[in-house]
């Protein structure tokens, strides 16, 4: 899994750091960065991404396909 923090979206809410402290930390500008992509299991990393209030964390599978955020749900 590849983890990307969209720096322009990150507001330093720290949700990702709380959920997956082994993976994320805040830098000196209070933006989240990936300190160790292997610092938690895939489920925990996905939960960290889901907890971000601005959806600043993008996740990609090994083929490069975006797995989070999910595309918008179809509406009826």
């Amino acid at each position: 899994m590849r983890i990307e923090v969209k720096r322009d979206l990150c507001i330093g809410a720290s949700s990702c750091v709380i959920v997956a402290p082994g993976v994320f930390e805040l830098d000196s500008e209070l933006k989240a960065i990936v300190k160790d992509p292997n610092g938690a299991d895939a489920h925990t990393i996905l939960e960290a991404a889901r907890a971000c209030p601005t959806l600043a964390i993008y996740l990609y599978d090994d083929d490069g396909k975006q797995i989070f955020p999910l595309p918008p749900a179809p509406t009826s």
Partner: peptide, 16 residues
């Protein structure tokens, strides 16, 4: 303060 931020909103296209 800064903002607004966040995606916890009802999308305008959501009709359900």
């Amino acid at each position: 303060f800064r903002g607004p931020f966040g995606v916890f909103t009802v999308p305008p296209a959501e009709t359900r």
